[in-house]
Design a protein around this nucleic acid. Structure first.
Lengths: 336, 336
DNA sequence: CTGTTAGCGCCTTCAC
DNA sequence: GTGAAGGCGCTAACAG
């Protein structure tokens, strides 16, 4: 039952008393091999349960048919959706996926990339962590000739391939919606100020307000460090205001959940006294008793798919390509 | 910046006018190489930016330092927790992780295993899908000499390595809890009857009841196909009973969420008219307004870690080992 | 301590 | 159409 060694080309050559090269060609349907020999070879191959030794092929072809995926966390539904699509694209192309979670740790991120490099992956897809400030890995991968495509959480520099979601459109739609429901006291609970993602939200928020001629009020924009405590602190800051906002856009759904929990605890009525819209649109909203008024969808699956497709293009064209930038537009949707 | 070819051992040998084997040994800190030569070699290696070609090493050593992980879905928090721990163990051991989602599709499962085999992974960790009835892949992997360890959702056969969570203890604790709160009309919303997981729950449920001398009532045990519709239908069946149960154990948290939603919709008061306990203990409960009374923890992370550790043992011992069975015991905990 | 030789399994010129 | 030979990069006998 247990075959010590899998069959090799040589053995089937020996059996047929022909040369290994002929066998190799036959197995690869090389045109110059006679149909009969090809058949005979394949028959014996099947009998011997022959399977090509991929490691040998990888070695020879200088290609591993493997791509690496690096992202902050697998447990976030957002990234799950992305990696799922990535895997679909990869398996269509007969590539396998090696993955690593950075857990928002820049060192760990770098280590993962190193590993991927020594494993000679053919390409890398990456969404950087919140704490990643500089990007040594870009040069690392480039010097190794390994293409890398960033998605969703992308470095704020040019000359790289990236796929991401423009946060502005969703924010504008959110504010439109709030305004059309009669809200004018609209807050933003933003993430850490240094994050690109936060800066974009703020910019869009200001733009949305001014579009409706609502003046920007300092005290309506608060920041959270994205911890549960920070999230709670942020909403308390808003609730304490004499002119408490009636509508809030929050950084993402996790923030929204903490915030809504805190609101509930204080006896403020959700979707009555105060209304929420947040980014991400996590699937679990449909189970919640009082879900937010709306969500801003960021299309993780589509981003993942596009990024993967782009990566495979880069892998297939040996030439160094122009940096490509693909943008999705966030959109307001019903939660869940 | 971009080096066409990475440096090889040969080149650094040539530079130093020594033999490649010496270089190889030096780089691997072989004891028989003089300290000076070792130093010189390493110095030149660093200068040339040498990095060993893993594909060559894999090829030569007949080992890829890669393990495959196959599970139904990455997006379930349960499996995320497991794979996260698996990855931790793997990276401690300097292994990388290739993963595939079966999406509960038996064919896809088989295809993933095939791919893992051709990629010559050193071992496989697997949690089988709900629809997997027979296990051709066991023989497949065995004939290739690739050890496989199952975890959580494991085949119902002997002679395999498995790590799983005994569901009984948690069920007994749940029923104890219900009874001590004065409940005697205790229902079970179970999964598809053919699932091993369902059979175990039923058995434990019956045992728990009889422990408290509560007679088993047919109409108190209903099944769901685990779809949202099925879940709703199941609870409606219970609610329609003249002697409606006041306490329900449900198959898992997804079922519980659907069920609780349905209950809410009909104006039955959660945690008052009717109480729930379910398996899994998903982290999101802490955000829910009326969470279940308790959850049954199945320790996905611990299962993943143990399974991985076992797999690495198997990989390291060339000998075919006795089938190992490691059991965790589910436990009642506060949700979230 | 170091060098020589050989070979992992496959593919690919180059000959015939 | 087929065979022989060589080599990918590295390691591991076997010699010195």
């Amino acid at each position: 039952m247990k075959e010590g060694k899998p069959a090799t080309i040589k053995e089937i050559a020996k059996r047929l008393k022909i040369s290994p090269s002929t066998v190799s060609r036959a197995l690869n349907d090389h045109p110059s091999i006679g149909l009969v020999t090809t058949m005979r070879v394949k028959k014996v191959a099947a009998e011997l349960n022959y399977e090509p030794n991929q490691t040998a092929i990888f070695f020879k072809q200088r290609k591993t048919f493997t791509v690496g995926v690096v992202l902050p966390s697998l447990s976030e539904p957002f990234f799950s959706a992305a990696i799922s699509e990535i895997e679909n694209v990869a398996s269509e192309k007969n590539y396998t996926v090696i993955m690593g979670q950075s857990l928002d740790d820049a060192d760990r991120e770098m280590r993962i990339l190193q590993t991927l490099k020594t494993h000679r992956v053919d390409g890398v897809l990456m969404s950087i962590g919140k704490n990643t400030q500089n990007y040594p890995f870009i040069e690392l991968m480039e010097s190794a000739g390994i293409p890398i495509v960033f998605f969703d959480c992308v470095p704020d520099i040019e000359n790289i391939h990236k796929v991401y979601c423009d946060l502005e459109t969703g924010m504008l739609e959110a504010i439109d919606r709030f305004v059309s429901c009669g809200h004018h006291a609209i807050s933003l609970i933003n993430g850490p100020a240094r994050l690109l993602a936060s800066m974009e939200r703020e910019k869009a928020y200001r733009k949305g307000l001014s579009k409706h001629s609502i003046p920007f009020k300092e005290e309506y924009m608060v920041n959270t460090d994205l911890t549960p405590e920070g999230n709670e602190a942020a909403i308390l800051q808003l609730l304490a205001l004499s002119d408490r906002p009636s509508a809030v856009v929050s950084f993402n759904d996790y923030v929204a959940m903490d915030v809504m929990k805190a609101v509930r605890k204080r006896g403020v009525a959700l979707n009555q006294d105060i209304h929420f819209i947040s980014y991400a649109n996590y699937p679990l909203w449909k189970y919640i008793e009082n879900p937010p008024m709306a969500s801003i969808e960021q299309f993780p699956g589509d981003q993942g798919r596009k990024a993967a497709e782009l990566l495979f293009q880069l892998i297939e064209t040996t030439e160094g390509r122009e940096p490509t930038k693909i943008t999705f537009h966030s959109r307001l949707v019903n939660p869940g």
